[in-house]
């Protein structure tokens, strides 16, 4: 709070006080008072005025400066009403009440929307589980049709993959913990994803190589399987027509982490796009030129990894390869003795 700005704000009061003082001086003139008396009375008068102004100033300054400091220190600015003390002066009190009312109403509004989002998410999860039933019966029907059903099977697994995307997107966006972290062998999880995508991988003539996947990591196997499925789907989209398609999955271990490399020899990612591939809705050159891309796959992958405490990163040379790395921290705290 600035004192001169404050004084300027008090201008009407100062003008009225000065007018009063001038009138007083006129009276003194009328009563023929001595110069000394006038001086003393003037000094007392102005000192009193100054004292009142200062007292008022400091009272306000204490409150506003404290509020401004609290606000500066807060990362969630809307928590301010919880942080400030009730002021001792009337205007401040009014202001305080207003802030509190605003805050309360905002909190109500936010929790209303949060509840709505939660309900929507629950509905989506329920819906996904319901829609899986007709997909299950259709895929059985297609299989029972024999060769005639094969073309349906492919479309059905596409539908299933899209439905999974919705489910895991809903999960990745929400703070709710519906995962269980336990010790899992990477190979077992990758096998699940590979088996699910075996038909599409073999139709495209992809050679899958797995090395050293017998390492154990702490993760949620369902989520990790989805992540692998997502990476396989990405590789399938961006294989180069010029050479034989390959996917190599291997794991390396050091003192702090186990890192899984998921490497394909596809068209790669341009260096200018590489820093942004995990961002929401980012499609990049590849997405625009080669295949319809929603920019959601790697975003969901990254947020699931973040939730599980894994780090995900990418390396690529355009036209040669893409290597997605997931590193699982070693933390003995979780490990049961």
């Amino acid at each position: 709070m600035n004192f001169f700005a404050y004084l300027k704000d008090r201008l009407p009061a100062v003008v009225i006080l000065t007018t009063g003082y001038l009138i007083m001086l006129c009276f003194f003139g009328g009563y023929h008072s001595g110069g000394e008396q006038v001086c003393i009375i003037s000094a007392v008068y102005w000192l009193t005025v100054l004292a009142v102004l200062c007292a008022e100033y400091f009272r306000r300054r204490r409150f506003y400066n404290k509020a401004a400091d609290s606000l500066k220190g807060l990362d969630k600015k809307y928590l301010l009403p919880e942080m400030i003390e009730k002021p001792a002066f009337y205007e401040g009190l009014l202001c305080y009440d207003l802030i509190c009312d605003c805050g309360k109403s905002m909190t109500e509004n936010v929790s209303y929307h949060k509840r709505q989002a939660d309900e929507f998410r629950e509905f989506i999860e329920l819906w996904v589980h319901e829609v899986k039933l007709p997909i299950a019966s259709l895929s059985l029907m297609a299989h029972n049709e024999g060769e005639a059903g094969e073309k349906y099977t492919e479309q059905l697994s596409r539908i299933d993959a899209y439905v999974e995307n919705v489910l895991y997107y809903a999960r990745s966006e929400n703070a709710q913990k519906d995962y269980i972290i336990k010790e899992t062998t990477i190979g077992r999880v990758f096998k699940g994803a590979a088996l699910k995508n075996r038909e599409s991988l073999q139709q495209r003539g992809v050679t899958v190589t797995a090395e050293g996947l017998d390492k154990k990591v702490m993760t949620d196997s369902k989520w990790l399987e989805y992540i692998f499925t997502q990476l396989i789907a990405n590789s399938l989209k961006y294989f180069s027509p010029e050479r034989e398609a390959q996917i190599t999955v291997c794991a390396e271990e050091n003192d702090n982490a186990v890192t899984v490399h998921f490497k394909d020899n596809g068209i790669g990612i341009p260096a200018t796009d590489l820093p942004y591939i995990f961002e929401k809705s980012f499609t990049g050159q590849n997405g625009r030129l080669h295949s319809k891309s929603t920019g959601m796959g790697l975003y969901i992958t990254e947020s699931l990894c973040r939730k599980l405490g894994h780090k995900v990163s990418a390396e690529s040379v355009q036209g040669e390869y893409t290597d997605i790395m997931i590193s699982f921290g070693k933390n003995d705290i979780y490990r049961p003795e």
């Binding site: 096998k191 088996l195 075996r198 038909e199 073999q202 992809v206 050679t207 899958v208 797995a210 996947l213």
Partner: peptide
């Protein structure tokens, strides 16, 4: 062949055709 493939892949042997 599909069944054989599935059995192989289920044992983490990712053979191609």
């Amino acid at each position: 062949r599909d069944e054989l493939m599935t059995a192989l892949w289920d044992n983490e042997e990712y053979l191609n055709d």
